[in-house]
Design a protein around this nucleic acid. Structure first.
Lengths: 346, 346
DNA sequence: ATCCTCCGTGTAATCGATTCCACGGAGCCA
DNA sequence: TGGCTCCGTGGAATCGATTACACGGAGGAT
């Protein structure tokens, strides 16, 4: 493969001049400029990014560590991150932590070895050593979706409090009084926050969130099923199940169906994280939608700022309630102005 | 950050010796070995992969170009690829082509600039120039899921012919005679193959596949909806719609519901590509399941072989039919004793 | 005792770019 | 005309590893 030396020889200039042309350095004569370009073209020369990285100490590569790639929410996040990174001239190496702190640390280590310019993480737990070291050592880092309290790193996330309040209002308006939640792991910020928001919102209506209405899940479908089964086996089962993420909602859906129960008449279901599939289930599932794409883009922008020495601030975007039919709302209430209205015929 | 020179100084040896220890070269005395390890540990030294790559001309990085990351099938593929690559000591840079040849070429170019060791591609079209160049220039390349005819590159994919035949048998057994298909883009191998397999299978039952029962989709949900609407508007609509991928099946599902029709009584639906969600729709969707995880792993193994100079052969794995309720099978028929034989009772 | 062979080690070249510095020439001003 | 400032250019150092080659010393064979 042709190197910069070959180009220099072919153009009759030094490697320094070739490099200048390639990097748009101003002091190059028009003549030399043209000859270099011609030589580059003729040889099909492409600069070796590895060599460039060694010299400049920049790889123009971002590391993205995702808790669970198979979760559609994170898939969408990853997609928007990759897109925005590409737009800014960065490539992305993705690591799937699978909700395992060990795997997460493993990824941090290889990414650091590869001298990525920055790290984008939705941390799996509260304090995996490698990650903390990296952040403290000054590796440009941004947390997305979840974060680790006490670590001074910009956080890009959605605030679901208002949407959860809207959800509770919606449920209360429909006459529901016994509301239960399937929580995520307490070690994750999203795990605990959503329960807090839910409890606070219930409080505004003078409603309690009894212990037995808080099920402990792990953001995976199976745990949603298990918890829901337990709910249904209660002497006084809840009227509504609110799942703290989409996969657990799925498990809940299964458990409900397996019992022969019907949504929304026998029990209501709502979920945190809206995903395309919720439109296609029967009935469509009421959910709290995060601005996932914008979250990914904002995270990359913040990270790029950090990398390029500009200041980066945390970003919190509002989530919003998307009412569908799984809680018993009249179909027409689902209206969201810019979205197609679901059919109203039964 | 500490470099190899610092380690050498700290251990009182030369950089060559440090390098030998790090690379498990045999001729190092036990004493030196121990001192180097101690120094590495003390300084928290981690070798710079960029420098190493420059010297060795190996990045231990794979490029993965996916047609559409948001498609659960490809998400799962990407996940298994990343997993297997990690197991073999490779990192993966993912590029999302979004079914666009231009974007695909763009990714090929940046990946090549980064001197990735090998390329894993599910090609978006029949002949994007960069990709062909790369393959011909000797970049280790493996096609996965889709391939480009005439290019001499190992292909790892699933063969759906037998499963499609099983599906048609299943449908025929249920009394269906008017079967339609939503095809993928003809430019992709998977687009045309599935139609061919379907037509061939129909032929075995003396059934035709009339022109108006072949809808042209693009592997996206919206096209599935559009095509299905056209099917339903036909003077004699089909009794079964077979979608050539999961997203188009989703669109079909929507179109069917929008018409107020009911699965499986009014019309039957089946899909190529099984995904977790098909279990959770109502009714669960009968689908042809690819061994996606195994596909991803096999592809990485083949690519690693190519990279390491070993020969790599193409791999074709069988897909299998997973009967659920969307075509009218009794619910209990969904069980599969490893390879379910479609029921013969009507 | 002499020579040969290994073994452990260090010196220095190398990978392919970027970039500091020096240098010659042209243009400008006094 | 002499001196100064730019401008375009090239030589060479540099990034941080790997590795070919050389070398001194120990041990074995003759």
């Amino acid at each position: 493969m042709a190197g910069i030396k070959d180009v220099a020889a072919a153009a009759g200039v030094s490697v320094a001049t070739v490099s200048r042309v390639l990097n748009a350095h101003p002091s190059v004569s028009a003549d030399a400029h043209a000859r270099v370009l011609a030589a580059v073209d003729r040889l099909g020369y492409r600069p070796n990014a590895v060599a460039r990285s060694l010299r400049t100490a920049q790889t123009r590569t971002l590391g993205l560590i995702i808790s669970d790639v198979m979760n559609p929410y994170f898939t969408e996040l990853a997609r928007s991150v990759e897109e925005q990174a590409r737009a800014l001239g960065y490539s992305v190496i993705i690591g799937n932590a699978d909700e395992s702190p060990r795997l997460q640390d493993d990824h941090v280590r290889t990414l650091l070895d590869r001298r990525i310019d920055g790290l984008l993480v939705s941390p799996t737990d509260g304090g995996s050593p490698q990650l903390l070291d990296a952040a403290r050592a000054g590796t440009p880092t941004v947390f997305v979706d979840r974060w680790i309290p006490g670590v001074d790193v910009p956080v890009v996330r959605a605030d679901g409090r208002a949407a959860v309040r809207d959800l509770v209002a919606h449920l209360h308006g429909l006459g529901h009084r016994r509301l239960a939640i399937i929580a995520g792991p307490a070690a994750t910020t999203t795990g605990s926050e959503r329960v807090d928001a839910f409890r606070a919102a219930l409080g505004e209506y003078g409603l309690e969130l009894p212990e037995e209405y808080v099920g402990q899940g792990d953001f995976q479908a199976e745990s949603g099923r298990r918890v829901t089964e337990a709910f249904l086996a209660l002497p006084e089962p809840p009227e509504v199940v609110f799942a703290a993420d989409n996969l657990m909602a799925l498990g809940a859906l299964d458990a409900i169906r397996a019992r022969g129960l019907h949504l929304p008449d026998d029990i209501a279901l709502a979920a945190f994280d809206d995903i395309p599939w919720f439109v296609h289930t029967d009935p469509p599932v009421t959910a709290i939608a995060q601005p996932t794409g914008e979250l990914g883009r904002a995270a990359v922008r913040a990270l790029a700022a950090l990398i390029e020495g500009r200041p980066a601030r945390s970003v919190t975007l509002p989530a919003r309630l998307v009412v569908r039919r799984s809680c018993g709302a009249p179909a027409t209430a689902a209206a969201h102005p810019s979205r197609p209205r679901p059919r109203s015929n039964p």
